[in-house]
Nucleic acid binder design. Structure first.
Lengths: 364, 364
DNA sequence: GTGAAAGCGCTAACAC
DNA sequence: GTGTTAGCGCTTTCAC
């Protein structure tokens, strides 16, 4: 079909192994004119060696698997873009992408396909499932990097982990609320616990306790993400807003699981007749560019996405799986708190929607 | 490394070709017990045939190339998701994805890599570049489907085309503004002309003329999309908003090139102290879910994304390139106008920001 | 320095 | 019905 190494060899009047040698840079002890002839032939025939055939021999293919919950969550789109650009530019790798909608079956099937395609390096983003099948993939010769979850404590793992400091991110977000004077706090999340979610919740609670607000910090978990995956997280936020609006006393500051949820939350709050930040303040986490475009613009904790994605790719390119002496968790501090418009001081006096106002608690 | 067809054959006490036969469904005239033994061996050894080796023989690999301008534009994330899901479920294909940031070089390089990887089917979304290199890819045995551009009139093409009816979409959007009473219209786009952009502009003008507003329909083209690609389109919208705000007389209704631009536009308008839809109305096109979450929620023309993406995948799976008798353009009517909150009647009387109000024109 | 030849894991004639 | 065998396009010893 297309031109092969044979054609080039014939054209240059050399053997295939000579051509192969120039392809693979073994050109040191080669007669310059031979080299030139081969190069000329390659150019003339527009020869591109088949990665396939190369791989069949070498067992290596310049393809990186990327597993995301859903491409419709802009955060994952952002990460995918960064991963793609860096893997391409730095290592010449292309991306084989799969959405899992956080479904274990789909994840497994994707791994099987990767193996069958000879792909030996994968980055897995925010998997809900346990890591057992990751480990088995490593056994089968894969380098796997997992985002947004740490090693299970006390368990040996051969999977790399890269993640933001979710605890710290949530604490930053919560503190921001506290500093602006909020005393009744909520954390809005979705149903289902993952490592990163629980770390965020811990950070939220930690900040609340620091401020002596232990009893005033509530976790609101909304619906589960259905098969449509992560776009739905905004819908969960929207629904949570209704619950929030109906609470009495109502929290005045809420930390959202991530930016997309925050955006959904703000939409829902508005539908419920509440104004952000006048009636209620909202902080997100992630730092997607859409947060700057929302109305009000979203205050959020910016995660160091380019740094994290670069680390993931670098890890995935590692020739060896981590062993007992290597550090398998790589944690990134949140970049900073981005103050925009969605946070303000709480309303001076709580105008309870319809209920009697029975709050007299004073913070110590 | 992993188990091969040889292992299975040995394990089952048959030859490799027998195993190959069951793999490829040539099981009709096979003794049931042989079949059973082979299947058992496959299961026992967890054998997964290498797609690589298969492909080296057959020249086919179940991989679909997808070229997008940028994954950070939610519209493309959406399309990528639909394409992936359908290609996977319907044809068992995985996605090899590449971002081009509308760069011709990157596009070319991606095509070369696809070829080298043995990928024979590609979907290209919204390419700015001309189609010459697509054609050459078809010559080299690729099935290529191009989104959002039609065949160049009068030119023979072997590339499939799938696209929304951009003319109609823009016309719908514009009419909506006209029906709500707007008489000074604008169309906000980015620098650089593509087929789809010019079709939209034509639709905009057509609707304006229908309403006798020929002189009142202005096209505002903003900055070019830099290397960061499509997320920037929102920024262009934002900048355009400033220009819009300064115009005198100022258009009261604006059609945005797409939803992301509309969202940027609304953010910019707000920064300029204008309120949507009180001071100015905005309509988008695309129908991404984020439009429902913006504030105000975006009125837009919904495109039939699942239908279009399915058509694209089906075309890409076509065994033959289109020939002179086949219909290579497939155009999808916009699904409908989604009325949300970003469009209202124009302000009763134009309160010009600072300029003298010199408008006395009456519409016929 | 360069070439011959043996595979990598599979498929598909073609024998038997 | 099942097995033998010749490749697919490349890499890589190992001779010369």
């Amino acid at each position: 079909m297309s031109t092969t190494i044979q054609d080039v060899a014939r054209h240059a009047g050399v053997s295939v192994s000579t051509v192969s040698n120039v392809l693979n840079g073994r050109t040191d002890r080669m007669r310059p004119e031979t080299l030139a002839r081969v190069q000329a032939a390659i150019a003339a025939l527009q020869f591109r060696p088949s990665k396939l055939a190369q791989q069949l021999k070498t067992g290596q293919t310049p393809l990186l698997g990327l597993l995301v919950p859903s491409l419709t969550n802009p955060m994952y789109g952002y990460m995918a873009r960064e991963i793609e650009a860096y893997a391409q530019q730095q290592y010449g790798y292309r991306l084989l992408i799969g959405s899992t909608y956080r479904d274990r079956q789909k994840e497994q099937a994707f791994f099987d396909d990767l193996l069958a395609h000879g792909v030996r390096r994968v980055i897995v983003i925010s998997s809900l499932a346990d890591e057992r099948h990751f480990e088995s993939a490593v056994e089968r010769g894969m380098a796997v990097v997992s985002y947004d979850r740490g090693a299970t404590p006390g368990k040996r793992s051969r999977v790399w982990h890269v993640m933001p400091d979710n605890f710290e991110a949530a604490r930053l977000a919560t503190r921001h609320l506290v500093e602006r004077g909020h005393r009744r706090l909520a954390f809005a999340t979705v149903a289902g616990m993952t490592m990163s979610r629980s770390a965020k919740i811990d950070g939220f609670h930690a900040a609340a306790e620091e401020a002596g607000l232990r009893g005033e910090a509530e976790v609101l978990d909304g619906g589960a993400l259905d098969e449509y995956g992560d776009a739905m997280i905004a819908e969960v936020g929207r629904a949570t807003a209704q619950r929030l609006a109906a609470m009495d006393p109502r929290p005045t500051g809420v930390v959202a699981l991530n930016d997309l949820m925050a955006i959904g939350l703000m939409a829902g709050l508005r539908e419920a007749g509440l104004e952000v930040p006048r009636d209620i303040s909202v902080v997100g986490m992630d730092g997607i560019y859409l947060g700057a475009l929302s109305n009000p613009a979203l205050s959020t904790v910016q995660l160091p996405v380019p740094e994290m994605t670069r680390a993931m790719v670098d890890r995935a390119m590692q020739p060896e799986a981590p062993n007992d002496t290597t550090q398998i968790d790589q944690v990134f501090a949140p970049e900073r708190l981005v103050q925009r418009e969605s946070v303000a001081a709480p309303p001076a006096r709580q105008r309870a929607a319809k209920a009697t106002n029975d709050e007299e608690k004073t913070a110590p």
